[in-house]
Design a protein around this nucleic acid. Structure first.
Length: 426
RNA sequence: GGAGGUGUCGCCUAGUUAGGUCUAUGGCGCCCGCCUGCUAAGCGGGUUGAGGGCUUCAACCCUCUCGUGGGUUCAAAUCCCACCACCUCCGCCA
């Protein structure tokens, strides 16, 4: 949720943001009307309530006829108050609903346009010239199956399409990546957290995943719980309803959790291997900070992502996502796209968003600074999404004989310099 | 899953049996002042929180707030219902 005061102080800023996102600006006028209705109904209720309260005290003191008389008056008042309260609730509910459907304010310098209008900020490293090395590029699935690392067939047998087993060195790769990522994050000052992967509707909604993204979310009706699509959800809701001392900000958390995505609407897209799956594990960074610190924190998160990808020696590009492709909560988003040799292109492996106060306001996360209370800003960023990182590792570091070179940073964690074909087995 | 208990303003706590100055008691802590070589102790005063209004600031005003949400009533911390969290015991379980 954005700051409702903006409706009165600077509605044009909201209109501009809506236009940049390619969404209707009419919502702003609806909101202004709803805000006015809400405010006047509150004022009406409050004055009635004040009268009722003061008469109530007289009743307590009065006796005999005077009391009977007062009681008759208060009875009338009670009905009016009840009606005013109902009107008030209705107006508030309507306003809140509209307000919740309004996406975050996009920063003015975010590139305009949609999915394909991202801006490439930087290219780091260069793809290998496999042809010059005389290597026929294999994709991650071919490599992974040969190495006994990935088992898609049994994934489908047990759980269905877009499920997989990581086996042997595949499983070890995930453990190694997880430990490398978490250890790096700890060095950077993050507090590691293992968050729950099932959350209440309030957590899901507060982080903005129940809007247009709702059809991509797994829901357990018997328990009224959602499976998270990212640990961001639980990490953001972690401090919900709390007021934090400003001196304790910024707070850096690094979470590790499974991520569940229905991938509705992506049928037929990226169907091979583990690129687009219903479940994967991810190490995620999350930051709570004062709004004025948010931009600097965002740059830091991006820096950490670049550091991690670089350590794994994956060529990549840094993109700034266009306004029309931002989620509900983000005011700005950077993606890192890693090189996927078998596809001959860069594909998304990390994403970091500055959500400013949008999520914090929905979740009631605030800070107290010299007596003043206001919303914090939240930011999130992928450190390591396992499946996609494994794809990049296998493909970029494959060698002519089908083995895979292990980048130096990962060797101590994986315990090997090169991943070679195991002795054949079923 | 079954049985019982608990939830009050930072922490502890009185109030719930008979609904009404509860505009919530007291202690601890904290803040200000006095006193005092310094500190401690002592003495006096202040201290629920949130949202909104007004405003240069301060002051001030309003609403909400006794786990949450409903209900009864002129009036609810107090009565009724539902839910949530925690604790104890039983059962089940990695």
């Amino acid at each position: 949720m954005i700051d409702p005061k903006l409706l009165r102080t600077n509605p044009d800023a909201i209109r501009r943001s809506q236009t940049a996102r390619g969404e209707s600006a009419e919502l702003v006028d609806e909101l202004i009307a709803a805000d006015e209705a809400r405010r006047s109904s509150i004022a009406a209720f409050e004055s009635l309530r004040a009268e009722q309260k003061s008469i109530g005290k007289d009743v307590a003191k009065a006796t005999g006829d005077a009391k009977t008389e007062l009681l008759a008056r208060t009875k009338q008042l009670a009905g009016d108050v009840k009606a005013a309260q109902a009107a008030c609730d209705a107006a508030e509910t309507k306003f809140d609903e509209l307000m919740k459907s309004l996406p975050n304010l996009v920063f003015d310098d975010v590139p305009l346009g949609g999915e394909d209008d991202f801006k490439v900020l930087e290219t780091v490293g260069a793809p290998r010239d496999f042809a010059a090395e005389g290597i026929a590029v294999k994709d991650h699935l071919e490599l992974g199956e040969a190495l006994g690392a990935i088992d898609m067939e049994r994934g489908a047998k047990v759980s269905g399409a877009r499920f997989y087993f990581l086996t042997g060195v595949g499983a070890r790769l995930e453990f190694a990546l997880t430990n490398l990522a978490v250890n790096k994050a700890i060095e950077w000052g993050f507090t590691p957290i293992l968050p729950p992967a099932l959350v209440k509707p309030s957590a899901m909604d507060g982080t903005g995943f129940l809007g247009q993204a709702a059809q991509d979310v797994y829901y357990l009706p018997a328990d009224d719980l959602y499976l998270v699509g990212t640990s961001e959800v639980a990490l953001a809701a972690y401090h919900s309803g709390e007021i934090m001392d400003a001196a304790t900000l910024p707070r850096h958390y690094v979470g590790y959790s499974p991520c569940f995505r229905r991938e509705a609407g992506s049928y037929g897209k990226d169907t091979r291997g583990i690129f687009r799956v219903h479940w994967f594990d991810k190490v995620e960074m999350f930051v709570y900070c004062a709004p004025e610190q948010a931009h600097a924190e965002h740059q830091k998160l991006l820096g950490f992502e670049k550091d991690f990808i670089s350590a794994l020696e994956i060529p990549f590009q840094v993109l700034e996502v266009a306004a029309g492709d931002l989620g509900l909560s983000a005011a700005r988003k950077y993606d890192c796209y890693g090189w996927v040799p078998s596809q001959g292109k860069y594909r998304e492996i990390t994403s970091t968003s500055n959500c400013t106060e949008f999520q914090a306001r929905r979740l009631g996360v605030r800070m107290r600074e010299s007596g003043e209370v206001r919303s914090v800003a939240t930011l999130n960023g992928t450190l390591c999404a396992m499946t996609r990182m494994i794809i990049c590792l296998l493909e970029n570091h494959q060698q002519a004989d089908g083995s895979v070179r292990v980048p130096a940073a990962l060797r101590p964690y994986l315990g090997m310099d090169v991943i070679v074909n195991p002795t054949p087995s079923s």
